[in-house]
Structures are given as C-alpha cells and as structure tokens.
Amino acid sequence: MDRFLAETDCDPKSYSPLTLAFIGDGVFELFVRERLVLQGNCPVKELHKHAVKQVQAAAQAMVVPKLEPILSEEEISVLKRGRNAHVGHVPKNASVADYHAATALESLFGYLYLKGDLKRLQELFREICEIQMQNIEKTDV
C-alpha cells in the first residue's frame, strides 16, 4: 500500500507544512492505534488512554531530536518546515516548543505518507517506539 487513494496523483512538496501535519497526525495516530490493538484485546477506554499518552505533543516532541540523526536531508527539511510553521494557537496542555516539535513530526509523517513511502514510515515508527521504551525504562529506574 502506498496510500489509501493511491490512484490520485499527489506531490507532497506542494503542500504547506500544516497541511502535511494535518494528514500526518492521522497517519501517526493510526500507527499508534494499530500497535495498541495488536498488543492484545482490551477495553476501548484503556486503548484510548494509552493512545493519548503516545500522540500528545510532549510525547511526540521528545522523540524528534533522537530521530534527527537517522533522517535524510529531505526529511530534515520537511521536519524544519513543520517546526517553523505558524500554528496560530497552542493547546493549553502543551508548551509552545513541544507543539512545534510535534507539528514537525506530524509534517514528516504526512509528507512520507503522501509520498507513498510506507516502508520509511514503518522504520521511523519502529524507531519512535524504541525511543519511547528507552524513555520509560529510564523513568522507571
């Protein structure tokens, strides 16, 4: 699968970073939700609680600097465009810096999705999960 609507041509470079973040938010959340469901059947309320922890701005922002070393120049460029986008407002439960970093990550996910690069999305999501697990282990010590 490249994209859900793969028959429609799309140039992800032509979209604004906030438009990329709009679709990237959904792509990232779908990865999170699929991972949670595959970990085992549990009540939807629990699934939602776990998903929110992973998709909130602070959780996304935490992984961005740790992902940067494995990103291509093209991906770094998209990330920077997303980080520098004028977002208009910041939710009350997120810092400005975290929200910009989260927007950057979502822009990257949107760009790669529209580009049809599912393999790269999978690689990055696996890396994000690994980073999050390492962070959990550090806080448990």
Rank of each mutant, 00 (worst) to 15 (best):
K115C: 09
E106G: 02
V37Y: 14
P12V: 08
L20K: 04
L20T: 05
E130L: 05
V87E: 10
I76C: 10
S72M: 02
M1L: 13
F4V: 12
S14V: 06
S77H: 07
R33W: 14
H50E: 15
A104L: 10
E7S: 14
V96A: 12
L121I: 03
K80D: 15
R120N: 00
R120W: 01
N41Q: 13
A58V: 07
E29I: 13
V32Y: 02
Y111H: 09
V78Q: 10
R81G: 14
L20M: 12
M62N: 04
H50N: 11
M133E: 10
N84T: 00
Q60H: 02
S107G: 15
A85E: 14
E123N: 05
S77F: 02
K53H: 08
Q134F: 00
H86I: 04
E127G: 00
A6V: 15
A59Y: 06
S72R: 02
K138L: 07
K92I: 07
E74C: 00
K119G: 04
V78R: 09
R120I: 06
R3M: 12
D140E: 11
Q132V: 00
V90H: 11
K119I: 09
E123P: 00
L38M: 12
V52C: 07
D25A: 12
A57D: 14
L38W: 14
V37G: 03
K66N: 00
M1C: 07
A97H: 04
H48K: 11
K115H: 10
F31D: 14
V27D: 06
Y15W: 13
H50D: 09
K115P: 04
A61G: 08
V32A: 05
N41M: 14
K49H: 15
L105Y: 06
F125Q: 03
L20P: 12
L124I: 10
D140W: 13
L112N: 10
A57L: 15
C129F: 03
G40S: 06
M1K: 07
K138E: 08
R35V: 07
P69G: 05
L71G: 03
V141G: 09
L47C: 05
G110A: 14
E74M: 09
M1S: 10
L18M: 15
I23Q: 11
A104F: 15
D140A: 12
E34Y: 13
